[in-house]
């Protein structure tokens, strides 16, 4: 690995650090590698001696997380003040975003509601048709048979739409869950 590759790799691993901290760290390693080379070691060996960018970055990130909490509470205060002052702006934007998401949920949840009410409606029709068919049997057998037929058809539609409802609801619960978690993930960052 060349010095340039090493430093670039290290830099990309330390993205979570502040610009200044990262630069300090990079120049520290650059200097040491150059000193190694100056003392008669090849570039390759110099980089090898210093170690792997991944583990170096991991070490420094662990240490930074342990020591820099004081600074972060101070900046948190500043961010808090800015949040309050900026509420008229970000508050309305947030509200618009929340309502947009809510309407998206309502639109997609319309599908199982439609199939669900279809199932309920056809099931009710089926019961009425079959029960009514018995009464009609005494008055007009031909009409009664037709009524039975309609009842059976409705039972079929009710069963199919129930399956569709259950399936859609399951899918949408998954979609809603993962989408909500993603949204929460964005805000956590």
């Amino acid at each position: 690995m060349t010095k340039a590759v090493f430093l670039k790799d290290l830099e990309s691993q330390l993205k979570s650090l502040s610009n200044m901290e990262r630069k300090k760290f990079i120049s520290y390693y650059e200097e040491i590698i150059e000193d190694y080379i100056e003392n008669g070691v090849t570039e390759e060996t110099a980089v090898e001696r210093v170690g792997y960018p991944q583990s170096i970055a991991q070490d420094i990130l662990n240490q930074e997380n342990g020591t820099d909490k004081k600074v972060s509470t101070a900046t948190k205060g500043v961010i808090g003040v800015l949040m309050v002052l900026g509420f008229p702006l970000w508050g309305s934007l947030l509200l618009a975003g929340v309502l947009l998401v809510l309407s998206a949920y309502i639109v997609i949840w319309c599908l199982p509601v439609i199939t669900g009410s279809l199932a309920f409606g056809t099931f009710a029709t089926a019961i009425v048709s079959v029960c009514g068919g018995f009464i009609l049997l005494m008055v007009n057998p031909v009409l009664a048979i037709m009524q039975f037929g309609i009842g059976i058809l409705c039972v079929g539609i009710a069963i199919l739409t129930t399956f569709a409802t259950v399936y859609l609801a399951k899918k949408l619960i998954e979609v809603t869950k993962s989408f909500t978690l993603k949204l929460i993930g964005i805000f956590k960052r």
């Binding site: 520290y28 200097e31 040491i32 170690g51 583990s55 070490d59």
Partner: peptide
Amino acid sequence: YGYQIIKDVSECITISES
């Protein structure tokens, strides 16, 4: 400076750049 400190301290106790 960095390199020299590592060299000097290493005489007594192992120390790495990181």
